[in-house]
Write a protein that binds this DNA or RNA. Structure first.
Lengths: 235, 235
DNA sequence: GAATATTTATGAAATCTTTATGACCCGAGG
DNA sequence: CCTCGGGTCATAAAGATTTCATAAATATTC
């Protein structure tokens, strides 16, 4: 699927760099590493990686600052590695321009899935028609309608806008602020309750089991994400 | 096949404009060209093309922005020409309201097929008889008359124009703005009440049960659309 | 002056916003 | 280890607002 995509790993701990390098090379990625933000910026300019993985904790220039600096010069997908529990930092990272994050400790499968998702970020469209399809769900942008197994689903304007926006950035974590700003406007950036209500309505209409959503996932403390590939749940 | 359908080609490179013009005219289309988004918008308002072909890369206003602007005022099918590999842009274009895209480099056959497909989706008055038929309804565009089960229905000029327009783009949601602009003109784009009155009159004349319309459906908060596939009615 | 178009008025329907409630998670303090 | 309290989240439902359908009055056109 992604033979030889270039990945840059930025971490100050040599052990972690090594470990990631070995594991990712096993998955056929071309890996380069950097031990600091400065190195990373230079490496990005020279090597043009397809994905950058950044540890949140770095000496001198932390992950958030680095993310910001990268974003000033490149739209390359950035995945942040964050310590468990630091929701605030996650949000900060996402709003500085990171595309996704993985919470430590994480499995290689998890990281790998996020890398794939970042590489594939383009929404899959069927043929040339403006229709989005995934699992049982299809959304026709021309007709402004959504179907679940061929069955038409009635969506209000706001519900449709929200769904469309989430599909557009599917796979990516979208913070409350980002969603609220996009759909309702800057002034509503703090009305997280709106979001809960409308996410709830969308789930009620789209999800088989609203308690275990397939499409619209919650990232507690951060926001929501439209899942790209329906995963089987472990539980 | 499509005698004299009007096509607008929007591209800033004179060579490509020329090439497309010549090739499409050979296929019996009436071709007009525009070198910029601004020109294109004006040409659409004045010439009412049946299909618009837009290069994604344009100076000042790019293809996506142009697509969005066209969509604000017209449901005309838009085919986007995109450079190879720019998946993200394609998605963006389709979500902005484009109907189809063709990746450069492309053959004339390919483009031609897409044009035909786009024309087919709008109800063209091609074929031997300019008559639209669906379920019990038939509209003769040459004689400007509509019949319900062979019985002639009296339509005022505005009612007829509105019906014809909706049939032409049947299946698509037509926003209030688009309908008002098309039938009454730019200046009336906010008079949604006109629409309600005339839609109501059309329904009274066409629909068996105005409370459960078969043909003219309401998309609350968005607009109206002419239903393509007749639904079985229950009860 | 007859047909048509525009405007006004009103109740109904759909949607959006707000409030209320309980579940759940997690850390602090007993 | 347990319980408490604060926070986020999901959901239902009440209230407010907007949009819609319809009838009818008025204006315009030919």
């Amino acid at each position: 699927m992604s033979p030889g995509a270039r990945i840059l790993v930025v971490d100050d701990e040599p052990q972690i760099r090594r470990s990631l390098q070995v594991n990712l090379e096993n998955k056929d990625y071309a890996v380069v590493t950097a031990a600091s933000g400065e190195e990373a910026l230079e490496s990005i300019a020279r090597r043009k990686p397809d994905v950058v993985i950044v540890d949140l904790v770095l000496p001198s220039m932390d992950g958030i600052e680095l993310t910001r600096r990268i974003r000033d010069q490149s739209p390359v997908p950035i995945i942040v590695l964050s310590a468990n529990g630091d929701e605030l930092k996650k949000v900060e990272a996402l709003e500085s321009g990171a595309d996704d994050y993985v919470t430590k400790p994480f499995s290689m499968e998890e990281l790998s899935a996020r890398i794939k998702s970042a590489l594939r970020r383009t929404v899959m469209l069927s043929g040339s028609e403006p229709i989005f399809r995934r699992a049982g769900l299809s959304v026709n942008f021309e007709r402004r309608e959504a179907r679940l197994q061929e069955e038409l689903i009635k969506l209000t304007p706001t519900e449709y806008d929200l769904l469309k926006y989430m599909i557009q950035y599917s796979g990516k974590v979208l913070t409350h602020r980002i969603l609220l700003t996009a759909i309702w406007g800057e002034a509503y950036a703090n009305q997280a309750q709106y979001l809960r209500v409308f996410i709830g309505q969308l789930r009620k209409k789209l999800e088989r089991n609203t308690a275990r959503p397939q499409y619209i996932l919650t990232d507690p403390g951060v926001g929501y994400r439209f899942e790209t590939s329906p995963q089987e749940e472990n539980s």
